[in-house]
């Protein structure tokens, strides 16, 4: 390739290194039928999973049974307790987070569901968090309930003995 020559008229001028193009567009998202059911439940202090025709219970469901490609239609009210199947300890303030560091982000398999959801683990020193720990949901005050997962503030140990975790799908126990 030939070198690009700067025309004489531009010699000595400062190069334009970048242009800044702010873009703002507003989107109106559609939650969908299944998510609407879930969020309505949350705003009433309930955790509603959905039993897929294939038999598995998903929470929250986005509406599709991944085994059959058909809608999940049967709501299943789930208890507010579950098992921590894995977790990580976060030591950095990520974008937009006002959390006290370090904190634990966990994969929680609610009793009666088949796919873990991700949420915060609190009221437990990070060094004590472990796979197999039993946890329960801590909700916001009743008057603060809103149709989003932040209505569950976090999960905390509920004092039950740890359980052995079976990896979903793989049938592996460790």
């Amino acid at each position: 390739m030939a070198e690009i020559q700067i025309p004489a008229v531009l010699e000595g001028k400062e190069l334009v290194r970048s242009v800044r193009t702010p873009a703002r567009m507003e989107f109106l998202y559609t939650a969908g039928v299944a998510t609407t059911r879930f969020l309505t439940g949350i705003s009433e202090g309930k955790i509603l999973g959905e039993r897929a025709p294939g038999g598995k219970v998903y929470v929250p469901s986005r509406g599709a049974d991944p085994q059959l490609g058909v809608p999940t239609t049967e709501p299943v009210e789930l208890p507010h307790v579950g098992t921590l199947v894995s977790f990580c300890v976060v030591n950095v303030a990520f974008y937009g987070q006002g959390m006290e560091i370090p904190y634990t982000s966990g994969l929680i398999l609610l009793d009666g569901s088949d796919l873990p959801l991700m949420h915060l683990i609190q009221e437990c020193p990070v060094d004590d968090v472990r796979i197999g720990m039993r946890v329960e949901a801590v909700w916001v005050e009743a008057h603060e309930l809103a149709p989003n997962l932040e209505s569950i503030r976090y999960f905390r140990p509920n004092g039950e003995p740890d359980v052995v975790v079976t990896q979903p799908g793989a049938g592996v126990t460790w």
Binding site: Y29, S86, C88, V90, F94, Y95, M99, S105, L117, L149
Partner: peptide, 20 residues
């Protein structure tokens, strides 16, 4: 608005699987 909050960025998604 209706998706679960991601408390920890991309690494926070994969770190629990690594722990597993």
């Amino acid at each position: 608005p209706f998706q679960p909050p991601l408390h920890a960025g991309a690494g926070g998604y994969f770190a629990p699987h690594i722990r597993s």
